[in-house]
Amino acid sequence: MSTSCESIEMAFPSTLSEALALQADERTRGRLISGGTDLMAQWESGVLAPPPRAISLQSLSELRGIHEFDASLQMEPGRPRPGSLPSISIGALTTHAELRSSPLIQQHLPALAAAAATVGGAQIQARGTLAGNVANASPAGDLIPSLLIANASVIVASMTGERQIPLANFYLGYRKIDLHPDEIIVRFVLKKCPEGSRESFRKLGPRAAQAISKIMCAYRARVQDGLVQCFHLALGSVAPTPIRLYDFETWIEGQTLSTALLDEAERKVASLVSPVADIRSTAEYRQWVAGRLVRGFLEELLGG
């Protein structure tokens, strides 16, 4: 066994401001570690060199919790007000196990709950976090497409205050995120799946559990009398980062669902993605199956 992780100096701040203070100073700054399920594996296998210091976020209660709120009212998360609350805030440290079993997520963000249920196995779900999944920035990060279709934003904090970044802009390139060295992701804000809309998630992996996705796909749509009024589509493992397929969305919105449209949609999706081959799958299969998955979603919608 490698002993490489043993040399890391660990800090365990107990409040967010303590953690932010550590990150603000180059001499105390360290690699942020939440569940450690990505980092430990990357350090151990040599994909990443173990850093001199790491900051455990596990004790920061500020990074926990799932709340409904109304973003337009600029209201603070966690202080519910009467009336409809169209947004949800999810703490950075929320685990996959919490996501999949939260009634709020199940009801209002069903694709996210479904995605969380496909991550790794029970152990990884108990330990791995939403922020870790997002910040790890793998094109195969299973939660990301479900966040993208919900127009999620990332809230990051530093000593100087908070920044809100639309998730779609958070990814700058392959494994590159818009996070400054002194910042910590504290929570995510998402739009609930509105009444009358549907969403769904599908993952294809090389086996039934403990599988890194060959491809995964989430959509949110509203269809009335066969007319596609609104369509959000996001895919993972077909590009250097998980992506929203905006070109497809604009193409299909305003069209009426029909069998002929299904064929066209399948081809359209395939023409819009250019995945690569890797150890898990081939470029051709990914391209083809991306179209097939979207066709499957549309069939669901067509079927009522």
């Binding site: 594996a41 296998s45 196995g121 086996r207 039934a208 559990a209 403990q210 150890i279 898990r280």
Partner: peptide, 16 residues
């Protein structure tokens, strides 16, 4: 060999 760990050398799980 292009797979050198259990992430890339895929064997069945109990669910499979």
């Amino acid at each position: 060999f292009d797979a050198d760990r259990m992430q890339t050398y895929v064997i069945p799980t109990a669910l499979d």
